[in-house]
Design a protein around this nucleic acid. Structure first.
Lengths: 259, 259
DNA sequence: TGAAGGGTTGACGCAGCGTCAGGGTCAAGC
DNA sequence: GCTTGACCCTGACGCTGCGTCAACCCTTCA
């Protein structure tokens, strides 16, 4: 007769595991000796080894009991199920590995590489750290909603950065929001540039985003995000409204200008 | 301002998950509105998306907080750790798949194929179901202790089955233990055959198992197993003792026979 | 006789939420 | 003004397979 420790050692498991199998009814509780110790016979050893064999193969404990009593065809079927479940699990993990492989650096986190490249360009033309982070967060919102489309939009955005007006705009905005003046006079200049750019885009008919325009939520969120990150943005929006434009990222004409 | 449901929908997660992130401190609790509802700004949306991006990549929640604030080198290092952890997990599951692939049928469960083949042969020569199962359980005990050696021993065991005496022995034993007579007269015949076989083996010097002989536990367990599976085995052991042999599976001479 | 090395039950911990239970709130239609 | 359905709230258990205390008892050996 074996003690629980000897039984466990023979089967290569821990004592705790054996007790657990008792608890879940996988292994019957044996008789106790005079001092209350569990005493095991050879049958228990065999049962335990068979249980461990299945458990090592990845079979959930809850199924092992049935499996040990199943006939050949039920057994084969169950094995099939378990195997395909394992395959799914492996695939899930493989996907995870691919995903983290793409998380090489900070910006590409939650963003496609194209957008990360755009943000790098922004940094290059002199946008401040805060500015780039704000842009990044905005694009995260966009990418979450239109993960496919956002990639298509990037070439045009990158091209915009060749426009000296745009470069000047980002530099001014960077300086304004990196400073701590509550009412920087350059804010008016920024608004002027933005209005001019909007005017050009409108004239060129580039202001239509397609069906995405119908979903206001991302745009509203981006506006809100900008204000949350710096309340002075509110002032900038006001200046834009004075110039006949609403919004921050998806500008709309408030009033048609006189001819 | 978004409700928790809108926030969750935007990021593609469940409401419960968001609340969980609050609980573990990953996402800060937002302000409440007049009726106690949580109200989220755009910043929360961005945070949540970034959290999910890492979580989807298999990063444990407990590390996501640090990771979102880490610099590029710490980030890369952490990503390395997580990736190698994922690799280990995948390998574990692959191993499981291999294992269950080998569990095609009942007997090979916890036994190498060689032993399963031996059991099939046993069935072929007319051993009863009970008999084969008893043998199987015995070999499970042996295979658990000497997984390598057991394979080497099988050819000799299979060869034994060509011996008509052995075949007869298994048939008699099958009949005895499939019946319900408490004192089957054929038991003496079985004992005679076993004694004769032991004598032959002893004479041929085949009774040494090598160093394995020093470990009594498996042998004792097999004897116990036999008795547990049918108490009448005890009688058989007694008959063997009368014939000068001890034990059931690893027989030893009790007394040297007179010349 | 005391210490070491077993054994006993009971209970919490882990990871990441899912899923009740038992409420309150909001918007819309009657 | 009332109902209905869709949301929101907190609190708590469940799942998987044990690991790891805690607090205590039993046996054995120096």
């Amino acid at each position: 007769m074996l003690t629980i420790g000897q039984l466990a050692a023979y089967a290569g498991v821990t004592v705790r595991a054996v007790r657990h199998y008792h608890q879940v009814g996988l292994l019957p509780e044996p008789e106790r000796d005079a001092s209350g110790y569990r005493r095991y016979g050879a049958t228990a050893v065999v049962s335990l080894i068979r249980i461990r064999t299945l458990a090592n193969a990845g079979v959930p404990l809850s199924q092992i009991g049935d499996l040990l009593e199943a006939d050949a065809s039920d057994f084969a079927e169950a094995v099939q199920r378990i195997d395909s479940h394992l395959r799914d699990e492996i695939e899930r993990l493989e996907t995870s590995r691919k995903q983290i492989a793409e998380l090489t650096a900070g910006d590409s986190l939650a963003l496609p590489l194209e957008v990360a490249a755009y943000l790098d360009r922004l940094r290059d033309i002199g946008a401040s750290k805060r500015m780039v982070e704000a842009e990044r967060d905005g694009w995260i919102l966009v990418a979450a909603r239109w993960p496919e489309r956002v990639i298509e939009w990037m070439p045009a955005k990158v091209a915009e950065l060749d426009n000296p007006q745009v470069v000047r705009l980002y530099r001014i905005l960077s300086e304004i929001f990196d400073g701590d003046a509550d009412d920087d006079p350059r804010m008016a200049e920024a608004a002027d540039i933005m209005a001019a750019l909007a005017e050009q885009a409108h004239a060129a008919g580039e202001m239509n985003l397609g069906e995405e325009a119908h979903d206001d939520l991302p745009h509203d969120l981006i506006d809100a995000l900008a204000v949350e990150s710096d309340p002075r943005v509110e002032r900038l929006l006001e200046l834009m409204r004075e110039r006949g434009w609403s919004g921050w990222n998806r500008m709309e004409r408030l009033v048609e200008p006189p001819d």
